[in-house]
Amino acid sequence: MTTFIWVAVALVAVALYLSWTAGRLDRLHARIDAARAALDAQLLRRASVAQELATSGVLDPAASIVLYQSAHAARQAEDEAREVAESELSQALRAVFAEPDAMAAVREAPGGEQAARELTQAVRRVPMARRFHNDSVRAARALRRHRSVRWFRLAGHAPFPGSFEMDDEPPSLLTAEGAAGR
């Protein structure tokens, strides 16, 4: 009789552990979804601000075209090509705002201070949002690699989470101004 009790206690302990692990995995997947939504919002905000600047007429025509096309491509990109399109927007931002004259032109335009502040905030928030997303993905991947998760199929039919890899280095001029404006 005592053997039966110990076996029942062990089964209950294993069931509690599996239930706790499945709940943790579910919370991690929800955190990934929330982090991805936040990342998408920041990427959309950055592309929108870049498009507004490109169409404002304060930048030279060549810079405006490059910035507008990159921002438009980033906004319209499908999921498979999103990382490349966002990386190209980062490169375009670095190219356009490599010279202090470009930011000076933006600041001198009516409403330019606000536009410069929005752009600085947008390019600084993208790396943070991407880091939060990729950290959540890393945690979920680590848990999904455990034997108990694989053996008991605790992840269900959820797809294996993927990180978002892109060139998110902001223009040095914008990060220096953002740090100086604190």
Rank of each mutant, 00 (worst) to 15 (best):
A54V: 04
G156W: 02
I32N: 02
R147M: 13
D60Y: 04
Q69S: 07
L16F: 11
L53K: 03
A47F: 00
A35R: 03
R31N: 13
V149D: 04
A116G: 11
A10D: 03
A41K: 01
A8H: 02
A140P: 10
W151D: 08
L16C: 07
L28C: 07
S136A: 15
R145K: 10
A54P: 00
D33L: 05
E52Y: 01
L173W: 07
H133R: 14
G111Y: 01
R36T: 08
Y68N: 05
A116K: 04
P161R: 01
R24Y: 08
L174F: 04
L16H: 06
L119I: 07
T21H: 01
R125E: 14
Q114E: 14
L53Y: 00
A116E: 11
F152Y: 07
R182I: 10
A158Q: 10
M103W: 11
G162S: 14
V126R: 04
T21G: 06
R117G: 14
R94W: 03
T175M: 08
V106E: 06
E177W: 09
A13I: 13
D60F: 06
A63M: 02
R45N: 06
A92I: 09
R82N: 05
G111N: 04
F160H: 12
A77V: 10
Q51F: 00
L16V: 15
A102W: 02
R36W: 08
W6D: 11
S136T: 09
R27G: 14
G57N: 07
